[in-house]
Design a protein around this nucleic acid. Structure first.
Lengths: 135, 135
DNA sequence: CGGAATCCAGTAGGATACTG
DNA sequence: CAGTATCCTACTGGATTCCG
């Protein structure tokens, strides 16, 4: 993350053999980083309910304050997450998915379930490959 | 890339509100890197036809020899791409998608088309966000 | 509480040169 | 041709400290 530029949509249509264009660099850049999707997911799990920064931090295992802040900022910038700031003392900030955000999450269903089904096979392939060429 | 470890499937089911588990870190790690998906896509465009290393390099704009090699090795290790080596002089190496590889590519359709539809809106959001808070 | 600012290590990935 | 092998740099992301 850290001031990512990302997501240039390269590739033009130019008729493949039944295949569509394709997203370029790392699917979309933002989707490739370590925390973004997890943040989106935890927000979606909350449903209509907004989540506070600290709640998110507690739920997302292993994330640091810094990384959560960066992930949220980027998502807010993209319009995938909405941020509500309440200037109280102590301050309170709540986050929720935008429609666009939950739309993106739904669009991830396909690759998500594919991964759930195939991860163990991939890991097996890696094991085989790794000790095949030993050295 | 460069000896990525990746793809630990964190997150357990634990009934959400209509949402499924979710892939962890950067979707799958491999999907998050810069070239992997592009390599898969160009291979799929070739259909049944295998592609040589140099053909891939020519088609994928901007990729270096090193990065193409790394991407292909990782994909081969995962079982997403098959490598055929012909010990001739000069050597010839051909690559093709495995069934698993094209399965993954199909699974990417959802997020792919979502991105095609929404990228411009995201970019617009970024522009707005960026010069809103000036500085 | 919810960050912002620093500092710092590891690594992705580009450029270039060499080789079987 | 299809890679290795180096070198090098920028960026990711963790830890820690400070602030309104």
């Amino acid at each position: 993350m850290e001031e990512m530029v990302v997501a240039t949509s390269d590739e033009q249509p130019e008729g493949g053999r039944g295949f569509r264009p394709l997203p370029s660099n790392g699917i979309c850049g933002r989707l490739g980083d370590k925390w973004t999707v997890q943040v989106l997911w935890h927000l979606s799990r909350a449903g209509a309910e907004r989540l506070r920064f600290s709640a998110l931090k507690k739920e997302i295992d292993g994330i640091t304050q810094r990384m959560l802040t960066l992930a949220l900022r980027n998502l807010e910038r993209d319009g995938l997450v909405a941020r509500y700031y309440f200037p109280e003392v102590p301050p309170r900030v709540e986050y929720e998915l935008t429609d666009m955000g939950s739309g993106m999450l739904r669009a991830l269903e396909g690759i998500n379930s594919w991964l759930m089904e195939n991860l163990s096979r991939i890991e097996e392939n890696r094991r085989v490959y790794d000790d095949a060429e030993q050295r």
